[in-house]
Design a protein around this nucleic acid. Structure first.
Lengths: 235, 235
DNA sequence: GAGTGGTCTAGACCACTTG
DNA sequence: AAGTGGTCTAGACCACTCT
């Protein structure tokens, strides 16, 4: 009947027993050996199933003891964020406002304690000729390498930062807030009175934990499109 | 020297070859058989390593062909969200404003096409006696079960919804935006003129995809604390 | 038909926890 | 000492792709 491989049938059976409450958080599952005997299969196959249940957040293996049913994580979401997808109907229209070298003492406080110089890049992002977002980015300045506008085509921030870093090894942080905007930003975005703006602060760290990129993205309320979904989709 | 298990050493070696650019996105790795021979180990162990690299987003297996090096996902973040942790300095102080049964025709449009009645619950959340957030939640009304205030202690929304659902099987969605707030909300939160508000819209679905919970959380700009981090932390 | 990954088995030895 | 999960082996058969 079921074309599913054995280990997947086992995954589903155990999953069902957990979701239906036959096993409660904190309970201990039958041992690998017992499961193998019960389902008439090998320990290897049982382990494959259990490792999937572990990766999906259902159970936790404890060496020498057994597999414990976990409290489900109810507050974990996956957020896909890039400058491109967080602006509604964004087609890619941008205007470069500034590319300049910023001396150490004029950096925002988030970067001030690093003793590096940074390149500051400012953009406006448009939707249908209307300004929808304003973006400021700081990248470490590499001595000797001139800043060429053409090089800074509007990729995602991690891609800009990681020119000579592997994209696999960087760490990133987002902070979402609703700032009180300066008159400058208000003018740039042509804000109506009372119109609000969302700010997304982005930090990028190297594998060694060094801050190698900082960005602030200000999005007009109407154009903002930020969606997150529960992490474990179970297929 | 290295106390690491064989399969982890293999993971790290291949990972390094990918991050250092010896293998580029789109490249195909040596076959399981070749790797087993090269590293003088069994195919099973090689497969264990490769499955880890797959789960961490480095490679994609293609049956009949081989393992392909993937483009790294640069825009995936993990967001931990709950009513408790998204409000800065929140200690748990709440005031229940309303618990009422809402007939089908008076529901917000997001719930209107379900032909169920919903219970509407409205709260104010305080930080140091100051209103910091305003919360509206809709839960399916279960006929015969009276709504008892004491039952609605302020747990996280998924916990409220899932009283008789397993928390493992629900799906959730968040939408973050900056709304133009009504006068009612402005008064409730005692907003200053020009002060902005962040809205987090939360939908909860049953395993079968039915909407079983809808919530709107309005947070005053100053109190908002939303942070997301890159998904793959690689330990 | 040769090569690939996908599934599965029946063992082995280890470090650890528990009585 | 018995039981548990962690690691590892050396096979087997399958469905698939490529040529």
């Amino acid at each position: 009947m079921t074309g599913l491989p054995l280990y997947m049938q086992l995954v589903n059976q155990i999953k069902e027993q957990i979701t239906k409450g036959h096993f409660l958080p904190g309970d201990i599952l039958p041992s690998e050996h017992e499961l193998a005997a019960k389902y008439n299969t090998s320990r290897t196959t049982v382990r494959k199933s259990l490792s999937i249940l572990f990766s999906e957040g259902y159970i936790i293996p404890v060496p020498g003891k057994g597999y414990f049913v976990k409290e489900p994580e109810v507050d974990s979401y996956t957020l896909y964020f890039s400058e491109k997808n967080c602006i509604e109907n964004y087609s890619g229209e941008t205007k470069l406002l500034e590319v300049s070298l910023v001396p150490t003492d004029q950096l925002p406080r988030q970067l001030a304690d690093l003793k590096d110089s940074f390149v500051k890049i400012r953009w406006l992002l448009y939707v249908d000729k209307e300004p929808a977002a304003y973006d400021i980015k700081y990248l470490p300045y590499e001595k000797g390498k001139p800043i060429i506008e053409k090089e800074i085509r509007y990729a995602t921030f991690p891609e800009m930062v990681a020119k000579h870093q592997s994209l696999f090894s960087i760490k990133k942080t987002l902070r979402i807030s609703v700032p009180v905007v300066s008159r400058e930003i208000s003018n740039l975005l042509k804000l109506d009175t009372g119109e609000s703006v969302l700010m997304i602060e982005q930090k990028i760290f190297s594998e060694q934990g060094k801050l190698i990129g900082y960005g602030q993205l200000f999005i007009r309320g109407n154009y903002c499109n930020l969606v997150a979904t529960s992490s474990y989709l179970h297929e």
